[in-house]
Simulated assay, not measured.
Amino acid sequence: NSLNTAAELTHYDAEAAEQAILALAALSQAAMRSGKAIKLVDEITLCQQYVALERWRYGERLALSWQLPGELPDIDIPCLTIQPIIENAVFYGVEPAEQGNISVEMHQSDKAYTFIITNPVAAEVNNSRTGNGMALDNIRQRLALFYQQKAQLTTTIRDDVFRVKLVIPKQRDA
């Protein structure tokens, strides 16, 4: 889909096509580093590139709000921890709906960083949209290895909102 979007953009907006291809390249490079350490700011940038790519497909249907601290902490997280959660939110929450508002929040406490990502649950999702939880399971495995079982990834559905809560410890065991 992303390649088709970039190909279509070449017909009427060369600069947008170039940005789409660069965003796709960044995602491809990240896939090769999956699970390896990446700075949080770089993971967030990757997420923003992904969303920019999808905005060319979904236009106004895709709304995303970021509630992040003014300055992100200088921490490492496993590459492709947050981006696949946002990708799932687009796939399951935006694509089948008329409008999809995704929210990404980050909170800090003395012991942990908490990310909460929410998206709508479409009232009538086509049966082909039911997932097998593979992306979330892969993230859980990366977190378990990276944080020695001290990180958490939980999901809930309440009031037609799918919520992912990611908690990572401030101190990472060596």
Rank of each mutant, 00 (worst) to 15 (best):
P78M: 12
F146K: 11
D159Q: 06
V94P: 04
N1I: 11
V90E: 12
A25T: 11
C79T: 14
L72Y: 01
I75T: 04
D160T: 11
I117D: 07
I82G: 04
P169H: 09
R33S: 12
P96N: 02
A63E: 15
E98A: 05
P78N: 05
A14Q: 09
N101G: 06
L72M: 02
A7S: 08
P84F: 11
Y92V: 07
Q19G: 02
A174V: 08
N138M: 06
A23K: 07
I116R: 13
D173K: 10
A17N: 06
R33I: 03
A122P: 04
D137T: 12
G93K: 03
I139T: 06
D74S: 10
E8H: 06
P96F: 11
R172W: 08
Q49T: 04
Q141N: 07
Y113L: 14
T81N: 00
R57I: 12
T10L: 14
T10R: 05
L40Q: 00
V90R: 03
D159G: 00
G100L: 10
I86Q: 07
Y92C: 10
R55L: 14
Q48L: 04
T81I: 08
E71L: 11
C79F: 00
I82T: 01
N138S: 08
L9H: 02
F91G: 01
E54I: 07
T114M: 13
S65Q: 14
A144G: 02
D159W: 00
A7R: 10
S128C: 03
D160Y: 09
D76T: 02
T81F: 08
G100Y: 10
C47K: 01
I139K: 03
K170I: 12
Q149M: 13
K150E: 15
D160I: 07
R172Q: 14
R55G: 13
Q67W: 07
P169I: 06
T45G: 05
H107L: 14
K39R: 13
A31G: 03
R57M: 12
L143I: 01
Y113H: 03
W66N: 00
A37N: 07
R61I: 07
M32C: 05
Q19I: 04
E105K: 12
I82D: 03
G131R: 01
L62G: 01
P84Q: 07
Y58W: 15
K39H: 08
I21E: 01
Q148C: 10
D159I: 06
K111G: 11
D76G: 10
D76M: 13
S65H: 15
R142T: 02
D110P: 02
Y113D: 04
P169L: 11
L166F: 10
T155Q: 15
A123Q: 12
H11R: 13
G35N: 10
F115I: 05
Q148Y: 09
H11W: 05
A20R: 04
P84Y: 13
Y50M: 14
I38K: 01
M32L: 07
I85T: 03
H11V: 09
S103K: 12
